[in-house]
């Protein structure tokens, strides 16, 4: 069973598809709720504004099916960028409730960074794992990834898998059982992103 890239009309998904193709991982865009169950794992992408993304996910009709497959059946899901922020309980960027699949809330970084660190954070950051996790296996080489965001996921140590330093320490990777999220874009992080998507493809809930 292949990976479903959840296509709910938010962001450009071409790069996620082509990186999977390059890796030889069977992955396809899915926008039909009935198609989701045929897939072993899910990628939840996202670019843009929080409320708009929540509304579009609701309007796509895929949310109940995802709840069933991810929360009841515990199939792995990886949220990317805004897709990770949607996993939180809430976001300062909007009024809507988040999915609440990873405990935490999303807050604006405005006002909390040293002056030379501008927003949006657009650039590469070195990710430091904060606990052992198959998504971020130990490596000799520092792992760097591409970030493009102005909001940060606040959570507790239990759900924090890796951090990045952008003047302050912010969450780069979060996880709760089978639900994982990266604030950065693996699909834009060449060999480092390829390694991470490969790790997600092999990830099983213990």
């Amino acid at each position: 069973m292949s990976t479903a890239i959840v296509d709910y009309g938010v962001g450009n998904l071409g790069s996620i598809v082509s990186m999977h193709r390059r890796l030889g991982i069977d992955a396809e865009l899915v926008s039909d709720p009935d198609e989701l169950a045929r897939h072993a794992r899910f990628i939840l992408p996202g670019v843009g504004a929080f409320d708009d993304a929540v509304d579009r996910l609701d309007a796509s009709g895929m949310r109940p099916a995802l709840e069933e497959l991810v929360i009841q059946e515990r199939r792995p899901l990886l949220g990317i960028c805004l897709g990770m922020e949607l996993l939180a309980d809430s976001s300062e960027e909007g009024e809507r409730r988040g999915l609440g699949w990873v405990p935490g809330r999303v807050r604006s970084m405005r006002g909390s960074l040293p002056a030379q660190f501008r927003l949006p954070f657009m650039g590469w950051g070195f990710v430091t794992p904060t606990q052992e996790h198959p998504l971020l296996p130990p490596t000799d080489e520092p792992q760097r990834f591409y970030f493009a965001h102005s909001y940060a996921f606040e959570t507790t140590a239990d759900f924090l898998l890796g951090t990045v330093d952008y003047g302050i320490e912010i969450a780069a990777v979060v996880g709760h059982h089978n639900v994982l999220g990266t604030q950065f874009h693996p699909e834009k992080s060449h060999r480092f992103g390829m390694a991470l998507l490969r790790s997600f493809d092999a990830f099983e809930v213990s």
Binding site: G123, W124, G125, F126, T128, R144, V164, D165, Y166, G167
Partner: peptide, 8 residues
């Protein structure tokens, strides 16, 4: 690890 600015 320290943040490094982009070179484009």
């Amino acid at each position: 690890m320290r943040f490094r600015p982009r070179v484009i």
